[in-house]
Computed example of a mutant assay.
Amino acid sequence: MGHLSSRLVWLAAAVSTVSMPAGAKSLLDYVGECVPFARAASGIQIYGDAWTWWDAAEGKYRRGDTPKVGAVVVFRKSPRLHLGHVAVISRVVTPRVVMVTHANWSRQNGERGHAEQDVTLTDVSPEKDWSEVKVWYRDMDGLGSTVYPVYGFIYGMPDKTAGRAVTRAHAAPELSGNDPDYVGALIDAYR
């Protein structure tokens, strides 16, 4: 009976609805770390430091190197990102330019942690495989100069090889704005 009850607890957790991060009236009011924000924005229920999400997704969610709306992009640990970073794809502009919605990247009003919607993320990897990116940075009012290593994308679709039922994740309705600046994203990416 213990095995059955643990499976029922797991199933209940898997089908629970996605909630807003603590202290936020809406997704975009959130101030805090990127991980709880990405969990709420994507519906992907993974826990732990951002850089650990890639391995944690194995057997639970599909992973790949193609950006799709609602997918979580997982940044590797690096000298500038000691815990990695996670962001949610809000728009695909071109095969090498997307927009993300994330938290705890740029400073706003002198503090980190705020949510940002439809931020430009550009693939700068030599193989065009999204293994290295540059991110728009509010403090510079443009694309940052730092290249960040990336594992890839975690999709909200269950990994069918896992051999168990996993609920499909659903992205939050506030993931993207009504009028994202595609032209600005392209200018940022290619300037």
Score class of each variant (00 low, 15 high):
L4E: 09
S6F: 05
R7M: 11
L8E: 10
V9L: 14
V9M: 11
L11C: 11
L11E: 08
L11N: 09
A12V: 10
V15E: 08
S16K: 15
S16H: 10
S16V: 02
V18Q: 07
S19R: 09
M20P: 02
M20E: 07
M20H: 04
A22F: 04
A24E: 04
A24F: 04
S26Q: 13
L27T: 02
L27D: 00
D29A: 15
V31D: 13
V35S: 04
V35T: 15
V35P: 06
A38S: 11
A38C: 08
A41Q: 02
A41P: 00
I44K: 04
I44V: 08
I46S: 00
A50C: 09
W51C: 15
W51V: 15
W51M: 12
W54G: 00
D55N: 14
D55S: 13
A57L: 02
A57Q: 02
E58Q: 11
E58V: 13
K60V: 14
R62E: 14
R63L: 10
R63Y: 05
R63K: 15
D65P: 02
K68C: 06
V69N: 06
V69W: 03
G70Y: 00
A71I: 00
A71M: 01
V72K: 00
V72H: 00
V72C: 00
V72N: 00
V74K: 01
V74W: 00
V74M: 01
V74F: 01
V74H: 01
F75D: 09
R76H: 09
R76T: 05
K77E: 07
K77Q: 10
S78V: 10
H85W: 04
H85G: 01
H85F: 03
V92K: 11
V93D: 06
T94I: 06
P95G: 04
R96G: 09
R96F: 10
V97R: 14
V97D: 02
V98R: 02
V100N: 07
T101P: 03
H102M: 13
A103I: 00
S106W: 06
S106Q: 12
S106N: 10
R107T: 08
R107K: 15
Q108R: 14
N109I: 10
G110F: 12
E111H: 13
G113T: 13
H114F: 14
A115N: 11
A115L: 06
A115D: 05
E116A: 12
E116S: 15
T120I: 06
T120W: 02
T120D: 05
L121W: 09
T122N: 06
V124T: 09
P126N: 11
K128P: 01
D129Y: 04
W130D: 00
W130Q: 02
S131L: 02
S131E: 07
S131N: 12
E132H: 08
K134G: 04
V135C: 02
W136P: 02
W136V: 14
Y137V: 12
Y137H: 12
Y137A: 14
D139R: 12
M140P: 00
M140R: 09
L143Y: 04
S145H: 08
S145M: 09
G152M: 05
G152C: 09
I154A: 03
Y155I: 00
G156F: 01
D159R: 03
G163K: 06
A165C: 03
A165N: 05
A165P: 03
V166M: 08
T167D: 08
R168A: 11
H170T: 15
A171M: 10
A171E: 14
N178W: 05
G184F: 10
L186Y: 08
L186I: 14
I187Q: 11
I187R: 11
I187K: 10
D188C: 09
R191E: 12
